[in-house]
Structures are given as structure tokens and as C-alpha cells.
Design a binder for these strands. Structure first.
Lengths: 230, 230
DNA sequence: CGCAGGGTTGACTAAGTTCAACAGTGGTGG
DNA sequence: CCACCACTGTTGAACTTAGTCAACCCTGCG
């Protein structure tokens, strides 16, 4: 699973600025001079790692999207995070003796970069900027997850959908939508049918549109009103 | 607000083993030799800090419980975390230029210890164990919050209540219960009434009991069955 | 062509919220 | 010391929301 594309060279990596190593100043760049990584690709639906796996690899997403899922005892899935380009994932490996706590699955074709946990730990000894960057990313993640929790817990289904759309396109007016209705449901804590109905209604009211896997916001004000974000 | 009790001396602090500095080995203990803190107390309902505040203090809880709450635009509250003795909170301050992202409120009488963000950052420069400990705590927190999200998202109300009870008493058979029904609802994403009904039923079936603010598990198997945790 | 999988829609149902009434409890002031 | 009030918790009944079940469409693929 996963096709090796080649070796990554962090120093010249096009997405370094968005990556964990984007925190390094000029004088520290030499630290990653020979920090080599493996660049691998996966196709839609392929699993990058599964809960409990022992391999010691942390990933940076270069292209595409990855979903991180947890399953309860009845086999129902909760998508806890959707990884975007530049994001780090699998970093629960930084906790001593821990294994992956999610299943990571490619949404469409993805390209990612494998970092060895051991090498990253060595690097942490040498650069406090790296430590700070890891702490910041972890804390950002806490915040994101708390927001997700708050929305799932407090918002009605229609508001959740509206919030998701706004959050997904962020500052843009449109963005690719690699999630199926089922996956949206698993992310928002709703059934396929409920998600489908709300999307249908938003389209009927000309507040959003979907064409060839691209989601567009047509009436941002209306969506903000609905989501109750103000 | 908050009463200064005195200065804390980390080296001799009774709860150091559970605290952030519990990670330090013998040879590093000298680092905190003169790391002084302020020990303060708050009474039930007093606010330790509010969302957006600028003070640069991180806290370790010594005694009692603290709830961390977020409010949506309609003023509805979501309790995102209940802090227990030995836990660190307010550490979003470790992200540069960030303010508190919750309201922290004492549940009953609490005693806590204020650490200066600046001094903690200095300490991080000197000890990689501290860095590792902070990263581990942040990642543990991500995991805890994801679990919370999963439960709120996937479990039925009765199962959420059962899960909460088990999670709260942990390995014990009973534990103090400082949360009101309303607060339980705000933690679990339910209304007061729903929580009350389920507690009433669990008591009726002799699966739990409540006496003078102490919650006891009488039939662990039944609760596990209900919560679907297996 | 026929079938599988994702998406949509409608009718019905179950779960939880909302509204309302009331009980218990602790604190305050006359 | 007791009456009153505010607040939390409990319970019932009506109502709303989202889930369930089922039918159907559409697309892509063997």
C-alpha cells in the first residue's frame, strides 16, 4: 500500500513553508540539510495507517486530503479530523510508547511525506523552534477539536451543515469537496439522509452550488446566519 | 478574585509527581530549585480566567475541580474539559500571542498554583524533559477531546450518561460529584431534564447512587453494557 | 445489459427538547 | 425562629427534530 515516489529534501521542499519545518529561520536551516524523507502517494480509499499500528512514522500531507477516523464498539465511524495540505498527522507517535489512535485514509489521490519519529526527536534536541512548532500544532489541534465538539454538541443539523460549508471553504468562495455525503455525516454526527436533505435545501435556495466535486458558496451571509456564528 | 495563600516551592510540592514537573529526574531537579509560584484559592463559582484575557499565567490544579467552558453566539455553554488535580490548564498561553480560549470556573473550593508563562518558557530551553512533558500533555488532551467528541456525536443520551459515570469514577467505585445537572448537560450535550431523567432511572435500577455529593457505581457491568464501551 | 454504490426524497418513528408544574433545600431578613 | 425567596432537581405531557426504512434515480463498470 502506498507508492514510493522518491526521497524528499526538506531544504528544497516546495511546501516547507507550510510544514513543520517552516518554523526554522535561516540560520537553522542547516539542521535539516540532510533530513531525508520518503515521499509516497496513495489512491482514493487507501489506508495510510490504522489504529494501533506500530510503525514509527509521522506524516506531512503534501497534496490532497486525508480523513482520520475513530470507530466505536458497534463499528460506527466518527471522522475526527480532515487533514489538509501542509498539516502534520500521526503525531500521537510523539507520545512515548503510543500507537496511532486513528485510521488514516486517503480522500482521493494524495501525496505525503514520511518523517521518522526517531529523527524528529533528535531534531527536537537541537532546535527549540521545532519544539515550539510541535507544541503550537498540538495546541491548535486541541482548539480545532474543541470547536468541532462544540458545534456537534450545540448546533442543530442545519446549522452544522452551514457551519461545515463555511469552515471548509474558509476565506475562499469555493473549494474542492472530496467528502461523500456519508463522510460528511460521519464528520458532523448526522445521517447521510439528513446531510443530503440540507445540502439539497441549500442548493434550492441558491446559497451553495456543487459542480464536479467543487463546492461553492453563493450566499455567505445566509450561511452565516444559519450557522449562528455571527 | 482568588485568594493568595502563599508561595509554592516546586521542589517540595506534595503534588509535584503528578504535575508537569513530575517528569524531571533527580539530576534535573535543581532546575526548579528556585522556581517559585503563587498558590491561590478560589471558592465555588469564582472565575479563574475568562476567554480572551491577557494575563500570562498557566495553572496547575492542586485541589478540587475546575470546568473549562466555551460559549456560542447564543450564549449557550459547552463544557469542554473538567480539570482534575495535577492537571495543567490555561496552556493555550504557550502559543505565541494567544489568549485564553475558555472560561475557567471553580467547581467548589479549589487550590491552584500559578506558573508564569515566561519562566516556563525559560525552563523549556533548559530541559528537554519539560518539552516532552508539555507535548505529551497536549497530545493527551487532543485524544481526550476526540473521545469526548466521539461520545457526544455517536452515543444516545442514556449511553452518554452511563459513559460519563464510568469515566468520572474511573477505576474507583465512587467519587465526589461537583457538577450540577445543568453542568452535566453542558458537558454531555444534553438538557438538564434528560440528564435528570437518566440519573433517576440509573438510581431506580440500583446501578448508581448519590449521597452528599458522592457518586457511586453499584453495577459496573450494567453501566458498561449501557455505554456500549464493552 | 444488469448490477452496485452513492445520492435523493417521502412517510413514519423514536428520541430528546421544550414547556410547565411542583418538590426540596439553603440562605436572608424581618 | 420562621417566612419567604431563589435555585436546583424532578416529573409529566406536548412537540420538534433527526433517525429509520423504503423506494427510486443516476452513474459507472464489468
Amino acid at each position: 500500500m502506498g507508492t514510493l515516489v522518491g526521497r524528499g529534501h526538506c531544504l528544497t521542499c516546495p511546501i516547507r513553508p507550510q510544514s513543520l519545518f517552516g518554523c526554522l529561520e535561516h540560520d537553522e536551516l542547516s539542521l535539516i540539510e540532510d533530513f531525508q524523507t520518503r515521499v509516497v502517494t496513495y489512491d482514493a480509499g487507501e489506508v495510510v495507517y490504522s489504529e494501533g499500528e506500530r510503525l514509527n512514522l509521522i506524516y506531512t500531507l503534501r497534496q490532497g486530503f486525508v480523513k482520520l477516523t475513530r470507530f466505536n464498539s458497534e463499528g460506527e465511524a466518527q471522522i475526527v479530523r480532515i487533514v489538509k495540505p501542509g498539516d502534520l498527522f500521526g503525531y500521537e507517535k510523539l507520545v512515548v510508547d503510543s500507537n496511532y489512535r486513528h485510521t488514516a485514509e486517503a480522500l482521493g489521490h494524495v501525496e505525503l511525506c514520511q518523517l521518522s519519529v526517531e529523527r524528529l526527536k533528535e531534531l527536537r534536541e537541537q532546535s527549540s523552534a521545532i519544539n515550539q512548532a510541535i507544541i503550537e500544532r498540538a495546541l491548535q489541534q486541541v482548539m480545532k477539536t474543541e470547536e468541532h465538539l462544540t458545534h456537534v454538541s450545540l448546533l442543530k443539523s442545519k446549522a452544522r451543515v452551514a457551519w461545515f460549508v463555511l469552515d471548509w471553504v474558509a476565506e475562499q468562495d469555493s473549494a474542492p469537496m472530496p467528502l461523500s455525503r456519508r463522510e460528511l455525516g460521519q464528520y458532523l454526527g448526522l445521517t447521510v439522509e439528513t446531510v443530503s436533505r440540507h445540502f439539497a435545501e441549500l442548493k434550492r435556495l441558491n446559497q451553495i452550488s456543487e459542480k464536479q466535486g467543487v463546492l461553492s458558496v453563493l450566499d455567505r451571509d445566509a450561511l452565516e446566519e444559519l450557522s449562528g456564528v455571527l
